[in-house]
Lab assay of single mutants.
Amino acid sequence: MASQGTKRSYEQMETDGERQNATEIRASVGKMIDGIGRFYIQMCTELKLSDYEGRLIQNSLTIERMVLSAFDERRNKYLEEHPSAGKDPKKTGGPIYKRVDRKWMRELVLYDKEEIRRIWRQANNGDDATAGLTHMMIWHSNLNDTTYQRTRALVRTGMDPRMCSLMQGSTLPRRSGAAGAAVKGVGTMVMELIRMIKRGINDRNFWRGENGRKTRSAYERMCNILKGKFQTAAQRAMMDQVRESRNPGNAEIEDLIFLARSALILRGSVAHKSCLPACVYGPAVASGYDFEKEGYSLVGIDPFKLLQNSQVYSLIRPNENPAHKSQLVWMACNSAAFEDLRVLSFIRGTKVSPRGKLSTRGVQIASNENMDAMESSTLELRSRYWAIRTRSGGNTNQQRASAGQISVQPAFSVQRNLPFDKPTIMAAFTGNTEGRTSDMRAEIIRMMEGAKPEEMSFQGRGVFELSDERAANPIVPSFDMSNEGSYFFGDNAEEYDN
């Protein structure tokens, strides 16, 4: 993207840094990872977990959730003011799984939030270390993106479920800051804005008074975040219109849905970061690795190297396929839920299948599930090659597409044709070009129609051997075009429920 120079890199967003050079960025990201790792080690000690239990991804998720809940100030305040039966607002906890007599047992633990905050700050040299908290939120978000298709949420806001490739980060909490905003897809931002506008339509006082002023500035800020994701002048001009509207209503909703559809071809720039579970960072720190000293990046080879040398386990339900569970977590670790499966298959070195073909449910185990038949197995999170994460949407291309997802959002900077089903997408653009945004709409449609099938995206960008740390010898991959490109292809993934 041309304006790259004016933006802070995501590592800076990730670490609240002012302008830093590459070495400083690597050190501050490393410091953040160190903090998460030290916190995780301490929690495993508190909970008396064995090494194996500490490497269980379900335990990692519970521990991450506990610290996120302990620092969720708004919710904590709300819980104190609106006490609900049987919930102690000062405590947080969740299921911890232990191996007892050759069987997995679930144990519900409860801790004072104050105590968890103390352990977290102690692991982070006394700081609140917001960057580390956001990092864990993005890992949870990436896992949700890989596990669930947001059909219901899309339909509720009037969008087409086939636009799911635009929904990265749709389950990120509001408090995820600049680093969170960077990884949100165009569809996620559109959905947040539509929800806001709908509230304004239904509630006369939404934009009024002292609160209304705050609401208005939040609305304009979200519009600017979305505008910054678009790469064409016409899309940005249309966002200006939406932002400046005196009284946002149905016309703005129409414009936003139009823009979301246009992003299936004229893709937005959305950041991709490899955020790993805390149970990967903990053992690495415990083994003596100093992330701050060595430096770390979320968008280069580092996460690949770390996963190459990590042992992570997962509980497996009786009829689940461990290899499929591994694929789910591998995609989440690489922030690749909406990437082209052919690119992923090449990088991973084994075939990556669409969601609907995987015999696996989510990673988390519900409290009512029976533990008797639970097994555990090693997650295979290694890769054959590594590639640089991208934040450009890439230019655009036609490809055989599917009944489910009709476009992709690249996660890796790797040369390819970008699949999208042009006739299906263009069919949504018939007729409606009147109104105050008509010239911009016409211009956007013209650009979409001009998108050429034979153009290559990320020209000359390749993948790298894991021994090639400096990215000196790019390998331009070859793809098996007979395979499906979309992950949520004609899909039956479970729906995400809060």
Rank of each mutant, 00 (worst) to 15 (best):
M1E: 11
G5T: 12
E11L: 03
E11N: 05
E11F: 01
Q12L: 12
T15Y: 01
D16A: 04
G17E: 02
Q20F: 00
A22M: 00
I25M: 14
K31L: 05
D34M: 13
G37Y: 05
M43D: 03
E46T: 13
E46M: 13
E46I: 13
S50K: 12
G54C: 05
I57Q: 08
Q58M: 07
N59W: 04
T62M: 01
I63V: 14
M66E: 08
A70H: 02
Y78C: 07
S84L: 14
A85Y: 14
P89A: 15
K91F: 03
K91T: 00
T92Y: 02
G94W: 07
G94Y: 05
Y97W: 06
M105D: 09
L110A: 01
K113Y: 02
W120R: 07
R121H: 12
A129K: 15
M137S: 05
I138H: 03
I138G: 03
S141C: 10
L143H: 13
L143A: 03
N144R: 01
Y148K: 03
Q149I: 06
Q149L: 05
R150Y: 07
T151P: 02
T151E: 07
A153Y: 06
A153R: 06
V155S: 14
R156F: 01
M163G: 02
M163T: 15
C164V: 14
C164A: 15
S165A: 15
S165V: 01
L166S: 10
M167S: 07
Q168N: 07
G169S: 04
P173V: 09
R174A: 00
A182S: 12
K184A: 05
V186H: 13
V190H: 02
R195V: 03
K198D: 01
W207D: 05
R208F: 01
G212A: 13
R213A: 04
Y219W: 14
L226P: 08
A233F: 01
Q235M: 05
R243Y: 05
R246W: 07
V270T: 13
L276I: 11
L276R: 05
L276N: 10
P283L: 13
S287T: 14
Y289E: 03
Y289G: 03
G295C: 11
G295Q: 06
P303V: 11
K305C: 07
E320L: 05
P322A: 14
E339S: 00
F346N: 06
G349N: 06
T350S: 13
T350M: 15
S359M: 00
Q364F: 14
E369R: 03
M371C: 15
Y385I: 08
I388T: 09
T390Y: 00
G394F: 02
A401L: 00
G404E: 07
G404L: 01
G404F: 11
Q405C: 13
I406F: 03
I406N: 14
R416S: 08
P419T: 04
F420P: 00
D421W: 05
K422S: 12
I425T: 15
A427I: 07
G431S: 09
S438A: 12
I445N: 06
R446C: 05
E454P: 03
E455W: 00
G460N: 04
G460M: 14
R470G: 00
P474M: 09
S478E: 00
M481I: 07
Y487F: 12
G490W: 02
N498K: 15
